Amino acid sequence: MNWRKSTYSGGGEGNTCVEIAETVTRIAIRDSKDPARATLSVPVPSFAAFVEGIKRHPRPGA
């Protein structure tokens, strides 16, 4: 899989975020601090709805 980190990943080496990898039908998500551990996989439409929800309701102070 081709993993990528958010452009908003924080700190020195950018390892305080999640990484995602895309397939045709699913988005895989893993912890960048421990990439060998299990991943979460969700359907593309569900991930898109999640991202849109975050854009509409950003974290306070962000």
Rank of each mutant, 00 (worst) to 15 (best):
I29F: 05
I29W: 05
A49G: 10
A62T: 08
S6C: 07
E19H: 01
P35M: 12
I29L: 14
N15D: 14
V51L: 14
R4M: 12
R59A: 12
G61I: 14
I27Q: 06
V18M: 02
R4C: 08
M1T: 09
V24M: 00
R26N: 12
V44G: 00
P43D: 15
V51H: 08
A62F: 08
P43L: 15
I27N: 06
F50T: 05
S9F: 03
P58L: 11
A62S: 11
S32R: 04
S9E: 04
E19W: 01
L40N: 00
D31F: 01
L40I: 13
I27C: 05
V18Q: 02
S41I: 04
I29S: 05
I54E: 11
I20N: 01
V24W: 01
R4S: 10
V18C: 01
G53L: 04
G12W: 11
R26E: 11
F47D: 03
F50W: 11
T7Q: 05
K55Y: 10
S9V: 03
A62E: 12
T7K: 04
V42P: 00
F47Y: 14
S9Q: 04
F50S: 03
R30Q: 00
G11Y: 13
W3R: 03
G53P: 02
E13V: 12
R4Y: 11
P58A: 10
R59Q: 09
M1P: 12
A36K: 04
K55P: 10
P43E: 15
Y8R: 15
A62R: 11
A28V: 00
E13F: 14
E52H: 06
I29P: 07
E22T: 03
R37K: 14
A48M: 12
K33Q: 13
A28G: 02
K55S: 10
H57S: 13
G12I: 13
I27H: 05
G61V: 14
Y8G: 06
R26P: 00
F50Q: 05
A21L: 01
R26W: 05
G10I: 03
P35L: 12
C17G: 03
K5S: 09
H57D: 15
S41N: 07
I27A: 06
A36F: 00
K33E: 10
W3I: 07
